[in-house]
């Protein structure tokens, strides 16, 4: 018995010092977030307003949704680089379905969701059954989709009244219902206040958070990501869990694509360039939130918000646009140091 109690007493002595580091790891990032909000509120007139808050939320809505999807793949120990191209493919598909094929908004949405799910299944199949490493499989899928989305229109953007490859003019239009997804605002205290995309973001964030934290499937996904062999020996169908994670990621990305199409009102082949990097950054920054040191939905949402607030604040303080990527990258690197170096020390 004495030999077993020994580790207890040794680990108890450096507790006080560890407690401070522990606290820093847990709440450091949230403290930084609050501090940043306070700083911008004082430094920039108009930052601390409801309108500004909604603008920030709207600016991060689509990347946030994609980031929540990629979080699911990170949870099972994978990674999905194809999310950006899934989103733009969904955007092009929605436009094509409505403008060229003259279908309704509902059909367009369904087509997009199916595309997302199918891409997710293919990604999962490549990774699980064809044993292609996750980064490479989804990188390949990314290239494939970037090319694929341009084929139906021979590389042109899709807009109402565009001329088609055969010389005729497209007769379809973006339906009002579809455009409302990007333009309608719900009343909340102030009339016409909360955009649909923000509502979708919040609903999806709560859903995926609840799924990962409170359902047995979410729990098993974490087990798969931490030790797949142990999960398998505990009876989990590891392959199915992995494939489902990519399906979630694909579907979330396609929802992002639908909102993008609705916001732009056209299928713009040049848009969505930053989606992948921004959403991956948000998910990785999320590792640092509350000292989780692992992918988590709350952290991802906070990560997206963090980037949004930072960029909005800097813009309002007249920082030039071309510094944005640098700042995002800088924040990401700092967050990664937070996650890996500090939490590693906290564990020892």
């Amino acid at each position: 018995m004495t030999s077993q109690t020994r580790p207890e007493t040794t680990s108890a002595s450096p507790m006080d010092k560890n407690a401070i580091i522990d606290l820093a790891i847990r709440f450091g990032f949230l403290a930084l977030l609050v501090g940043m909000v306070l700083f911008f509120s004082f430094a920039s007139r108009g930052f601390a307003s409801p309108q500004s808050a909604v603008f920030i939320l709207q600016s991060v809505a689509i990347t946030g949704i994609l980031a929540l999807g990629v979080t699911a793949t990170l949870v099972v120990g994978g990674f999905d680089l194809s999310i950006g191209s899934v989103a733009t493919t969904a955007m092009m598909a929605a436009s094509y379905v409505m403008v060229v094929m003259e279908q309704s908004a509902l059909v367009a949405v369904i087509v997009c969701l199916v595309i997302g799910a199918v891409v997710g299944v293919i990604n999962g199949w490549l990774i699980v059954y064809m044993r292609v490493p996750d980064l490479l499989a989804t990188l390949g899928m990314m290239f494939l989709l970037i090319g694929l989305q341009r084929i139906p229109t021979e590389g042109r953007s899709i807009a109402t009244g565009m001329s088609l490859p055969d010389g005729t003019t497209a007769q379809g239009t973006f339906s009002e219902a579809f455009l409302a997804l990007g333009r309608h605002r719900f009343d909340l205290i102030i009339p016409n206040f909360i955009p649909v995309s923000v509502v979708v973001l919040i609903v999806l964030a709560v859903l995926i958070w609840f799924f990962l934290e409170y359902t047995r499937f979410g729990r098993m996904m974490y087990a798969v990501g931490s030790n797949a062999q142990a999960a398998r020996l505990a009876g989990a169908p590891v392959r199915a869990y992995k494939i489902w994670a990519y399906v979630i990621s694909g579907v979330f990305a396609s929802i992002g694509g639908i909102l993008l199409a609705a916001r732009l009102g056209r299928g713009d082949i040049a848009s969505g360039n930053n989606l992948l990097l921004d959403s991956v950054a948000a998910a990785l920054i999320g590792f640092a939130v509350l000292g989780a040191a692992k992918p988590n939905a709350f952290g991802t949402a906070m990560g997206a918000l963090f980037v949004g607030i930072l960029l909005q604040g800097l813009t309002m303080m007249n920082a030039p646009y071309y510094t944005q990527d640098f700042i995002k990258g800088f924040v990401l690197v700092i967050a990664l140091v937070f996650t890996f170096a500090l939490s590693q020390r906290g564990k020892q």
């Binding site: 098993m220 974490y222 931490s226 030790n227 062999q229 142990a230 999960a231």
Partner: peptide, 23 residues
């Protein structure tokens, strides 16, 4: 390598194979 889920605490490691009965 084949038992412990390192990201889980003791309680979650114990419950792992029988989540269905615990939900």
């Amino acid at each position: 390598s084949s038992g412990i889920v390192h990201d889980f605490d003791i309680g979650r490691n114990i419950s792992l194979p029988f989540l269905r009965g615990l939900s």
